[in-house]
Amino acid sequence: MSALPLLDEEPPLLVVEGLTVAYGARVGCRDVGFELWPGEVLGIVGESGSGKTSLLNALSAKIEPAAGRIRYRLRDGTMADLFDLSEAARRQLLRTDWGVVHQNPRDGLRLTVSAGANVGERLMAIGARHYGEIRGSALDWLGKVEIDRDRIDDRPSSFSGGMQQRLQIARNLVTNPRLVFMDEPTGGLDVSVQARLLDLIRGLVADLGLSAIIVTHDLAVARLLAHRLMVMRGGEVVESGLTDQVLDDPQHPYTQLLVSSILQV
């Protein structure tokens, strides 16, 4: 009998090999490799300066890596090397197939236009032109992220931090992306607001079958959202595996230190 005949017939969505990001002589992250499958949530954890954000910036094509490859399975099934694509094709991918949720909603929203326009804009970027349909989608998404529909014409600058973050999520998901990057999506929010947002993200990811890469320093957030974890320190991945295994039976000294440093309530 074959040893491991389980579900690996499905190809990965994203394949990362030997990814290195450098800022001059300083290394952001070194030799990172992993695969991400459809519907899978990968958590990247580590403290400030561990290279999480460098990795995320390279993965989401914001900065070009010094070495390594990022391959992505396009909707037609072909595997494309991210940095072999033209700049235009890469931008198209970011606008349609991918979403990026920033820690600070101000980096992901336009604060001077209405909530509805923030959501509608992404749709228009992929060619939607019918005003009624765009507004309908925007209303629908405000509902999904639990923002009152009568706030559609308000500017996000009048929203609370938690509402802004939910609006940013709606803006990203309205184009029906297959891969979403999230950078500390609950950072800077009150704990009660965090719980609501986490629950929302959890539900949306499961319902839509999204793949997601979530960067966080909060191990409780990672446990709640991620199927698998990568632990980073000093730009390198020191440990990776099944989320509860990494957190409950950490092998690397640094992971053990992180886990044992959590304050018990």
Partner: peptide
């Protein structure tokens, strides 16, 4: 020997 994904499936 199982991968994380296989354990999730199990």
């Amino acid at each position: 020997q199982a991968s994380p994904r296989q354990i999730i499936e199990l």
